[in-house]
Design a protein around this nucleic acid. Structure first.
Lengths: 218, 218
DNA sequence: TAATTAGTCTAACGATTATTAGAATGTATG
DNA sequence: CATACATTCTAATAATCGTTAGACTAATTA
């Protein structure tokens, strides 16, 4: 009957492997990056501001927990989420954290101190407005990520190129920029730039992973 | 602009607090126990087969991650989940683990090597059968947990008492036993006992947390 | 008020984990 | 075939975590 204890310990230990995988900030950042699509190690390291060796070590842990898979193409090894459910899990985890952790709530509040009112803020009416062309939905992530999956009706202008491509955007309609999710600062920077240029702009906290299924996939 | 790096690091670090909280098997076991309702430290320690000191230490970590709350009543300190979402998160996490980790899949397969066929195995038809009295749904957890929340139409006979309360159960209808969830062995033991006594019995992998909303709450 | 119960806090040790450096691997290019 | 490149593996050290023992606290009972 103490046999039961051993079995139980083993079962919880297995689940804890998933917990361990997401117990490191850098691994979470890597997961979020992989939510944007397949990426090579160097790209991941760069985006997460860590060395390739460290990225490789973290990615190995994620692979041991079966959260990511790899594919080799020539010199590069490409990582991707092992399952759509991993993205959902990430969204669930960070949204629980936002619910429970005051520190996170405060930090995020500071981040989005911008009048969002000029634009519909629930998904349905935003999409309706986008469909009618009343607002411009702008994806400011790197083009590959846009190509891998993006919100319906979204146009792609990466933040880096925005400054000298401002004239592609209309001044008579509000622009709603989005990026990788609530912890990505690209949309925030894009909005700052747009407003300085005299555009009406707001940013969406959600990225493709948070948005869920109705995104346009490659 | 490197300011952004600091902000990001902080945001992911906050989410990682949740990850750290669920990166230990014993803490997961405590969370699952708390999914069954409020419990005092000693009870939790006993059920998880650890010392009270260790339980207290793990519970402190859970409290630091804001996943649990406490209430003092006389000599006892009662712990409970801080939010219904924590239970959902536990269910999501272990279900992802079951999806991804072969080791866990195998262990669980071994655990439920019982012909479940005699009984409807999707929720809706099981509930329909229970409503009509065609099957008996049996909650074999401790009574307090039954009182805190249980499945609709379920009767309570804790495993420990089952042996000398067998005659309360009908022999002409199948009995479906359930307990705390897929990692709890009480329902399995109950089914073994029932079958030895000549009853038709099966067990439900799900517990109240997995079942979701339509449970009967205190 | 003293003793008891239930639990927390502090400090400490050993066990993991994070991070980095250096060697090794597997693929592409000259 | 040698070299460069992208990445992994191995080993080592520093930081963190799990666990336990012992002192401490808050509420209860005698």
């Amino acid at each position: 009957m103490d046999n039961g204890r051993q079995i139980k310990d083993m079962l919880y230990e297995q689940v804890a492997r998933i917990g361990k995988a997401i117990s490191s900030p850098k691994r979470l950042e890597l997961i979020e990056l992989l939510c944007q699509g397949e990426k090579a190690v160097e790209m991941l390291a760069q985006e997460a501001s860590i060395s390739m060796k460290l990225a490789s070590a973290h990615l190995r842990e994620l692979r041991n927990a079966r959260l990511v898979d790899t594919r080799r193409d020539g010199k590069n090894v490409y990582y991707r989420l092992a399952d759509k459910r991993v993205a959902d899990f990430w969204v669930n985890a960070h949204s629980l954290a936002e619910d429970r952790l005051v520190e996170l709530q405060e930090a995020l509040r500071d981040l989005s101190q911008l009048p969002e009112e000029l634009v519909p803020n629930d998904r349905e009416s935003l999409m309706k407005a986008a469909r009618k062309g009343e607002v411009v939905v702008l994806d400011v992530r790197p083009v590959e990520e846009y190509l891998s999956a993006h919100l319906p009706f979204a146009r792609s202008i990466p933040v880096g190129e925005l400054r000298h491509r401002l004239d592609e955007l209309p001044k008579d309609r509000p622009i709603v920029a989005y990026c990788r999710g609530p912890y990505c600062l690209m949309a925030r920077d894009a909005v700052a730039l747009l407003r300085k240029g005299g555009y009406r702009a707001a940013h969406l906290k959600e990225g493709v992973a948070e948005w869920g299924l109705p995104a346009v996939h490659a």
